[in-house]
C-alpha cells in the first residue's frame, strides 16, 4: 500500500499537489467568504481533502472518522447553527478594530514563516513508515494502544464528552419561570388590547406561492407584513412577489380567458359556468 511506504510514491506526490492546492483554497475561502454558510462548506471541503491525506498517510481509521465525524457530524452541527442564526446574512468584512488586520496579517505571515523555518530546520529526513505498525491492521493497532497505554486518557475523554453534553444542555436550556398562558387567557388579552383579534393572515398568494417567506397581498396589491413570521422580517428574508404576482395574474387571466373561449367554442355546453372556479381551485 502507498501509505505504508517510508517515502511517498510519485502517485502520492501528484495527489498531494492537486489536493493540497484544493485544501489551501478551501481554507482561504473559509476565512474570506462573507456568508457563514459558504465558509462552512469550504471548510467541509478542506476536511474531506484532509481525510484523503490521512488515508494516504496510513491512518485509515482516522481518515474514515474524519469524514464521518468531522465532516458528517461536526460540520453539519455548524451548518445547523448557521441556519439558526441566519443563513443569508452576509458579514461585513470591513475591519473595525484599528490596526487589527495589519497585525493579523503580519503575525500570521511571521508565525507561518517561523513554523516553516522550524520544520525546514528539523532533521526530518528519516521516515520509518507505518508498515510494521499497521501490520496487524490499523484499527486493531489503534485499539490496542487506546485500551492499554492510553486507557486512562480514553476514560477521561469519555468523562469530558459527558460533561460537554451536560454543559451544552445547561447553556441552551431556558427554564420557564412562569405558568404558560392558556388559550383562553391569550384570546382575552388579544381582545383587551384590541390590535389583532382575528388570527394573523396566512402567507402566500392565491395558492400560487405558499412559502412562509412570501407575504400575502392586500386587496390593493401591496404585500402585508403581518403574513410573514417576525423572525424572517427581522432578518430581511422576505421575498416580495407583489409585482410578479400582478404580472402572473395578468397571464392567468389571459389563460383563463383562452380556456373559457375554448370551452365556449365546444359543442354541447353541458356544464354551467360555476365549474370554472372549481377547476381553478383544483389546480
Amino acid at each position: 500500500m502507498m501509505g505504508l511506504a517510508a517515502a511517498a510514491s510519485s502517485g502520492e506526490a501528484v495527489q498531494f499537489w492537486i489536493l493540497g492546492i484544493v485544501a489551501v483554497a478551501g481554507a482561504l475561502c473559509t476565512i474570506m467568504m462573507r456568508r457563514a454558510v459558504h465558509s462552512a462548506l469550504s471548510l467541509a471541503g478542506t476536511m474531506i481533502v484532509l481525510a484523503v491525506f490521512y488515508l494516504a498517510n496510513g491512518a485509515y481509521f482516522l481518515g474514515v472518522v474524519q469524514v464521518v465525524v468531522y465532516t458528517g457530524a461536526i460540520m453539519m452541527l455548524f451548518l445547523f447553527v448557521v441556519m439558526l442564526v441566519g443563513v443569508t446574512a452576509a458579514d461585513s468584512l470591513k475591519e473595525t478594530l484599528k490596526g487589527q488586520r495589519w497585525l493579523a496579517a503580519g503575525l500570521g505571515v511571521g508565525f507561518g514563516i517561523l513554523l516553516i523555518a522550524g520544520i525546514g530546520n528539523a532533521a526530518l529526513k528519516e521516515f520509518n513508515g507505518l508498515g510494521d505498525a499497521n501490520a496487524g491492521g490499523n484499527v486493531q493497532g489503534l485499539a490496542a494502544l487506546i485500551f492499554t497505554k492510553y486507557v486512562f486518557a480514553f476514560e477521561i475523554t469519555g468523562a469530558l464528552l459527558i460533561t460537554a453534553v451536560v454543559g451544552a444542555m445547561v447553556l441552551t436550556h431556558r427554564e420557564r419561570t412562569e405558568r404558560a398562558r392558556t388559550q383562553r387567557e391569550r384570546s382575552e388579552a388579544r381582545i383587551r388590547e384590541g390590535r389583532q383579534v382575528t388570527p394573523l393572515p396566512a402567507p402566500g398568494v392565491y395558492a400560487r406561492h405558499n412559502a412562509v417567506d412570501i407575504p400575502g397581498l392586500l386587496p390593493d396589491g401591496t404585500p402585508s407584513e403581518l403574513t410573514v413570521s417576525p423572525t424572517l422580517r427581522e432578518r430581511g428574508q422576505v421575498r416580495d412577489v407583489s409585482g410578479q404576482s400582478l404580472a402572473e395574474l395578468k397571464a392567468l387571466e389571459q389563460r383563463s380567458e383562452e380556456w373559457l373561449g375554448r370551452e365556449s367554442g365546444r359543442p354541447g355546453k353541458k356544464r354551467p359556468g360555476p365549474a370554472a372556479p372549481k377547476e381553478e381551485a383544483q389546480k
Binding site: 511517498a8 461585513s92 487589527q100 493579523a104 500570521g108 508565525f111 521516515f127
Partner: peptide
C-alpha cells in the same frame, strides 16, 4: 512526506489569521 507538515503549518496559519480577522463567532 515532510510536505504534509508544510501544508499543516500553512493551514494552521490561515486558521489563525481567520480567527484574528473574522468577527462572526461561528466563522
Amino acid at each position: 512526506p515532510v510536505y504534509y507538515l508544510y501544508l499543516a503549518a500553512l493551514l494552521f496559519t490561515i486558521g489563525a489569521a481567520g480567527v484574528l480577522i473574522r468577527r462572526n463567532a461561528i466563522v
